[in-house]
Design a binder for these strands. Structure first.
Length: 632
RNA sequence: GGGCAUGUGGCGUAAUUUGGAUAGCGCAUCGGGCUUCGGACCCGAGGGUUGCGGGUUCAAAUCCCGUCAUGCCCGCCA
């Protein structure tokens, strides 16, 4: 269903459209242009505004003011819009605050925790892949950006009626894992006091140092890598075991942040399913890939870049002609594996993966994993594939799409979305797993340590507030507050912006922050509690208590919650939600300061308004993965 | 060499896709506000040639051209 603000806007658009055609006949404007002309102006101008008059004034060779006035005259006010007038070339409309408040508040209370949702997804399946961390290190603050984006984008899509599958790709056959397997006999004994991912991450850094100094290490690792791909070898078992241990330790981190997956897809299972051979077969057959017998890439399977120059500007470099997909020794490059995997994701190739249950997660859903034996389940063949991957990988993502297009699957290629996010770095440089940049000095830059720090800070704040006696409650609340602080700081910035991490920014509890939003919710709840809120239905007459102050500002913004969610879903942008929440909570703070609820003669209406606010706010925060608490 | 991304008050960011009224918000700074629903708050002040230079337009942070800075990508690495 349309959100209240959409309803009003649609009405305004149609009214303008017919007023224009009645007065001037064909204006040359299409409906989309009228929609684009509409904005929400400063409140002294009204609630809705359109600049169409300025736009068509030139064609009509008349002053914008006059045209705006004529259009405004041609619009008959209805129940919801009480005034339309022209000013400075703009056509400004004022909604009837009583009617509109009734509409919004009733919609919020009726829809409850579904308020703001929409049906644009219409049950289509979206496969969201995140966070793609190699299973040889803990999540650092950069991986966390990926995970939080993936989780929140999944929430948003789900709320828009997409069927979302949260998938984690486990690269247990990658070069990084081969290096670990190669160096494994020389590493320290497992330190049981450390989380496995932290321990193995440290070992990986040591192994890397050894690799650099040791003669012939590269060749040996390549040998290990080949044996890892074969079933039944010692190397393949070790790689899988270590990866699983590490992945499980990483999931501990994920769960501590409230992030869940539906299925783990293992690279080794993709290899065993022979997806790669089939994918390359299709590519060759369709002429997208070929195997040159002469030249520098003789014996490889390559993708001809000359044929896709116009596909994207990235391919404009005339010095590049071929992209190697399969090496002359028969091993696959990253792009080859990704191609095969995506053909499965999109339902182009069908693989009979077997799945086993890994564990029942706290969100009530079972985590599944591909396995050598198990049962067949309905994962994959998605309508849309969303890949949360750093912007450094734009080029290979484009190659992937280009190959698919050339192989005759351009429609499928268009169903792949790359959410490219900017890198997270620290002052001291990169967070690379190889060099151990994530270990840092003093505090490590892991997601685990970050959450610990946030909890600590939240605990101090919670204790200072002295509202809560129960120690256990303090701990539980601090966990939520700490999580919220981190999540909000990550999700409020546009994904593509690079981020330089700083502890004080990540742990912000004031102003535009997660804790601020939660605090606002807790205060609102206190009003209802103290005021003896009875969840009674308002009489129609009660809405007459709405004013033109912050109460109506709140209602207007609440009415547009659905617009924000839809925009966030269409753009895969969490910051749209965060921005909305900042505006909403900030208006509520002003309302709270200026407008007494309990004991006022408008109490019934204002209580209901506060209730509707809490519903709207918690729905929005939930999309960011933030849980509200009653007190903090 | 080719390409991509980013650049907005001291710092961090919103608005850029779809041009529109005084560029919104937070931190920091300065000055105010708790005998009324929770001060993780609110009110006020100062602080901006939206990297720079052109162009298009009645109107440019937004579109176009050029340019600078930073980061990334362009491998039989992943």
């Amino acid at each position: 269903m349309a959100s209240p603000s959409e309803g009003i806007r649609d009405w305004f658009v149609l009214a303008i459209e017919s007023a224009i055609s009645n007065r001037y006949g064909e204006s040359g404007l299409d409906r989309q242009q009228i929609i684009n002309s509409i904005s929400t102006p400063k409140k002294e101008f009204g609630d809705l505004s359109s600049s169409v008059a300025i736009r068509i004034s030139k064609g009509l060779k008349r002053k914008p003011d006059e045209i705006a006035a004529e259009i405004a005259d041609g619009i008959a006010v209805s129940g919801m819009i009480k005034e339309v007038k022209a000013f400075g070339g703009y056509i400004n409309a004022t909604v009837d605050e009583v009617e509109y408040s009734k509409w919004v508040i009733e919609a919020v209370l009726r829809e409850g925790d579904r308020y703001g949702s929409c049906s644009i997804g219409s049950g289509k399946k979206v496969l969201v892949e995140f966070p793609a961390v190699n299973p040889n290190k803990p999540w650092h603050i950069g991986h966390l950006r990926n995970a939080l984006l993936g989780d929140s984008i999944s929430n948003i899509l789900e709320f828009c009626s997409y069927k979302v599958e949260r998938e984690d790709y486990i690269d247990d056959l990658g070069i990084q894992m081969a290096e670990i397997v190669w160096g494994y006999q020389s590493v320290e004994k497992a330190d049981k006091s450390k989380k496995f991912d932290h321990w193995i991450g440290e070992q990986y850094v040591r192994i890397n140092r050894r690799m650099e100094s040791e003669e012939g290490a590269k060749e040996k690792i390549s040998e290990v890598s080949k044996r890892m791909e074969m079933s039944g070898t010692e190397e393949s078992r070790l790689a899988r075991d270590l990866s699983m241990n590490c992945a499980m330790a990483q999931y501990e981190t994920a769960y501590s942040y409230g992030i869940y997956h539906d299925v783990m897809i293992w690279e080794s299972d993709i290899v065993h399913a022979k997806l790669l051979e089939r994918a390359l077969g299709v590519g060759m057959e369709m002429g997208a890939l070929n195997k040159p017998s002469v030249g520098k890439n003789a014996g490889c399977i390559v993708f001809n870049l000359d044929s896709v120059r116009s596909f994207a500007r990235e391919f404009e470099n005339p010095n590049e002609h071929e992209k190697v997909i399969m090496r002359s020794d028969g091993t696959a490059t990253y792009v080859a594996k990704d191609l095969a995997f995506h053909m499965w994701k999109l339902g182009i190739l069908d693989a009979k993966f077997e799945y086993k249950e890994v564990l029942l997660q706290k969100n009530g859903k079972t985590l599944y994993s591909t396995a050598d034996s198990g049962r067949e389940l309905d994962f994959g063949h998605a309508d849309t594939v969303v890949n949360i991957i750093g912007s450094a990988q734009k080029y290979p993502q484009l190659i992937l799409k280009a190959v698919l297009s050339l192989a005759g699957y351009s429609e499928a290629a268009n169903r792949i979305v790359h959410v490219a996010y900017g890198e997270v770095s620290v002052d001291s440089g990169s967070l690379s797993g190889r060099s151990g940049g994530w270990i840092g000095e003093g505090k490590s830059y892991t997601a685990d340590v970050l959450l610990e720090e946030a909890k600590k800070k939240a605990e101090e704040a919670t204790e200072k507030s002295k509202k809560i006696e129960d120690r256990k409650l303090v701990a539980a609340i601090s966990t939520e507050v700490g999580r919220a602080a981190i999540k909000f700081e990550y999700l409020k910035v546009s994904p593509e912006k690079p981020v330089i991490f700083s502890w004080s920014t990540a742990l912000n509890f004031e102003g535009n922050s997660g804790p601020y939003c939660m605090y606002s919710y807790a205060r609102a709840g206190r009003i209802l509690k103290k005021g003896g809120y009875g969840y009674g239905k308002l009489e129609a007459g009660d809405y007459a208590a709405v004013g033109r102050g912050y109460d109506f500002e709140l209602i207007k913004l609440m009415g547009s919650a659905g617009d924000a969610i839809r925009k966030a879903a269409e753009e895969y942008a969490t910051n749209v939600i965060a921005d909305y929440v900042i505006n909403l909570t900030s208006i509520f703070s002003k309302f709270y300061e200026s407008t007494p609820v309990i004991g006022s003669k408008e109490q019934p209406f204002r209580m209901e308004l506060v209730h509707a606010y809490m519903i709207t706010l918690s729905n929005m925060l939930r999309l960011l993965g933030i849980k509200t608490v009653e007190e903090m």
